[in-house]
């Protein structure tokens, strides 16, 4: 199992998938901050100002970290950041699924009537989180080997 988790091709695949997904996810949000702020606000977890701040800054975090993973620099830092974001996404979706609220996911598109949150979006984020943690583990082990 350890050997499989450390397989360089698997790590490369996870890194590229994570990078491409987050770069893609950031573009529409950067272009339409007002619509994205509304989606964030509808999750009912942040105040008005915090929703706006989150909507204005989050897509750039996704873009920078995603690009870094694609290029192959700051792999540990980027995967740590994206994994943290994914934990927040999973928590926000879970809370609203528990509340029974039907919301636009705001995952990839800010268009109204887009994809709603559900078990599928939750599974998607958990899968991406697993990929993020794998990349993080690989990056940290790589550093230790270099130092050793």
């Amino acid at each position: 199992m350890k050997k499989l988790l450390g397989n360089r091709w698997l790590l490369l695949l996870c890194r590229l998938v994570l990078g491409v997904v987050f770069v893609y996810a950031s573009i529409d949000k950067i272009q339409h901050p007002a619509a994205f702020a509304k989606q964030v606000y509808n999750y009912q977890m942040l105040s008005v100002t915090a929703s706006n701040l989150f909507a204005v800054t989050l897509p750039w975090m996704e873009l920078f970290a995603g690009l870094a993973l694609i290029v192959g620099v700051f792999k540990g830092e980027s995967s740590l950041l994206l994994s943290t974001l994914l934990v927040i996404f999973v928590a926000a979706i879970s809370v609203n699924l528990y509340r029974g609220v039907n919301l636009d996911c705001g995952c990839f598109s800010t268009a109204e009537g887009g994809r709603s949150i559900g078990m599928l979006t939750l599974a998607q984020d958990v899968g991406l989180l697993a990929a993020g943690l794998l990349v993080l583990r690989g990056a940290m082990l790589g550093r230790r080997q270099l130092a050793g």
Binding site: V56, T57, A68, L81, M140
Partner: peptide, 23 residues
Amino acid sequence: DWGKTFLGALAIVGCAAVVGLVY
């Protein structure tokens, strides 16, 4: 290593916040 990685992640957050707010 973990401390450095954490600070690096915070640096990305800081850069993204500055760029996002300016944009």
